[in-house]
């Protein structure tokens, strides 16, 4: 029993908190556990969740990417805009390419050139946001009519009774976790984040894999942008602002170390869901959005603080 408790506290603390939190909520509000409410929460978390999976890889590789909110907006706007002149599927392919190129730029600037990634992506956040304004002329981009059914399915459709974005989120999480744990590429990314010098001495192509984490981050932000566009059929130039904070919060709450090397995509998902449930509760309790921002910031500081302090004392 003691061993079990230690195991839970050490490795599954966040899951335990999540379960306790949900159990408490379902006692207080009976319809919390209704299928409808659960899928509602899941659908709301799908976009942040997809971005957070990308952020998990970047952070495990000892980097940071705060440009993802802007990338989401640009990709969302492009998804809608391109459809005026081409089939929606082709538009999506182009958008994915755009996301990966932005990720590649982030990677090359931070890894190959050597600018700290937080600075690179801070600048990229501004550049990409500017591009969104240029592209949309400052107005919300809307697909007025003729959104094809195939396209709207991505953000609004259901498979059976499960919303498609939720399925997409789970696919991304499962593939991400598999890639991280079961492939050598994932192992190398962990190794680089854990000890870059040792990784170099092990013969790992350190730079290549670190750049790869940023590309993964960019592509997943693009996917999130497509889902966003499909769900709302309208993308404002301010779309996705603050999403990078939510994604990073989910990642660190999920126990991924901000100094790199260790983390789990599955736990990031738990982090995303916990944040969504907390937000949901606050809304029910009538706590204003401004206060929620403060609470979110404090949660990040506590989560990272626990990890960093434990490291410092070791």
């Amino acid at each position: 029993m003691k061993f079990f408790l230690n195991e839970v506290l050490e490795n599954h603390l966040i899951l335990a908190i999540f379960i306790v939190f949900c159990a408490g909520l379902s006692l207080m509000t009976p319809n919390f556990l209704s299928t409808e409410n659960i899928f509602n929460i899941l659908r709301q978390s799908s976009i942040i969740g997809i971005i957070a999976v990308g952020a998990t890889f970047v952070i495990i590789g000892a980097g940071f990417d705060i440009s993802v909110g802007s990338v989401l907006a640009l990709c969302g706007a492009l998804t809608l805009g391109l459809q005026y002149s081409m089939h929606w599927a082709l538009a999506c392919v182009i958008v994915l390419a755009v996301g990966s190129v932005i990720g590649l730029c982030n990677g090359i600037l931070s890894v190959t050139i050597g600018i700290p990634s937080i600075i690179v992506t801070l600048a990229m956040m501004s550049v990409v946001r500017g591009l969104v304004y240029l592209y949309s002329d400052g107005y919300p981009f809307t697909l007025v009519e003729g959104a094809s059914e195939g396209f709207t399915f991505i953000g609004q459709g259901d498979v059976g009774f499960i919303p498609f974005p939720v399925i997409l989120l789970f696919v991304v999480v499962i593939v991400g976790q598999w890639f991280l744990v079961k492939t050598r590429h994932g192992r190398y990314i962990c190794a680089i984040g854990g000890n870059k010098e040792a990784a170099r001495y092990s013969g790992i192509a350190v730079d290549k894999y670190q750049v790869l984490t940023f590309v993964i981050g960019g592509v997943l932000a693009a996917i999130a942008g497509i889902v966003y566009a499909s769900r709302l059929l309208s993308v404002s130039p301010l779309a996705g602002q603050g999403y990078e904070l939510d994604a990073i919060a989910a990642v660190v709450i999920g126990g991924t170390s901000v100094s790199g090397g260790q983390g789990s995509v599955l736990k990031t998902l738990v982090g995303v869901l916990l944040l969504a449930v907390i937000g949901n509760t606050f809304n029910l309790m009538g706590i204003p959005v401004y206060s929620q921002l403060i609470i979110k910031g404090v949660i990040i500081l506590v989560a990272v603080g626990l990890d960093s302090y434990a490291r410092k004392r070791r």
Partner: peptide, 9 residues
């Protein structure tokens, strides 16, 4: 410690 090992692995 710095070149040969991943201490947290």
């Amino acid at each position: 410690k710095t070149q040969g090992l991943y201490l947290d692995f």
